[in-house]
């Protein structure tokens, strides 16, 4: 790292996973972020959101099956199968509170952070990727995220 260490005692600003997702999505054309707060603790919410071989495919309307191909540290590679038989190999980052995955034709991203009083804020974005670019086709991005958040709410109820 080429950055400078700060002397002890100087205040540091924390950047939670939802803030990170907002910042990252800002650099991806069409990646509108949709957020919702759930009355459930972070570990429970996150456990449902990124259970790749369990609830993940139930949450994402267009997927029927997800398999983890490789997981090293916070790096993950998954194979996903769509309802129309299409297949995608997504790779990216998955760690507590933050997940960002991309394939040639898809981007899927989610983040969660404690909101206080046992509540959790979840932020989502994703959709059909413009191949090879940091861009999502800007059609139905918020609608799909809202549907996913609705299903997450039902699972947490």
């Amino acid at each position: 790292m080429s950055d400078t260490e700060q002397p002890q005692g100087w205040p540091t600003a924390e950047v939670d996973p939802v803030r990170r997702l907002r910042a990252l999505a800002g650099a991806v054309s069409g990646a509108a972020v949709t957020e919702r707060v759930y009355d459930a603790p972070l570990d429970v919410v996150w456990g449902v959101l990124v259970d790749f071989e369990g609830s993940f495919a139930d949450l994402q309307a267009d997927l029927t099956e997800v398999r983890v191909l490789d997981r090293t540290g916070d790096r993950v590679e998954v194979a996903a199968k769509g309802r129309l038989g299409q297949r995608a190999r997504l790779r990216g980052v998955a760690r507590d509170g933050f997940c960002w995955l991309q394939s040639r034709f898809l981007i899927m991203a989610m983040a969660a952070t404690e909101e206080g009083d046992g509540r959790t804020r979840v932020a989502l974005t994703g959709g059909v990727r413009v191949p090879g670019r940091a861009a999502i086709v800007p059609v139905g991005v918020r609608r799909e995220s809202r549907r996913t958040l609705d299903r997450l709410g039902e699972m947490l109820a």
Binding site: A13, V15, R20, G92, V93, G132
Partner: peptide, 30 residues
Amino acid sequence: GDTVALCDVLDLVTPYVGRVCGAIALDSGP
């Protein structure tokens, strides 16, 4: 256009940004 690399750049600079903004902006740091 690699968005995972974009994510890595974010991870690389975030602690540094947190230190600069925390020291100057204090409560408005985040």
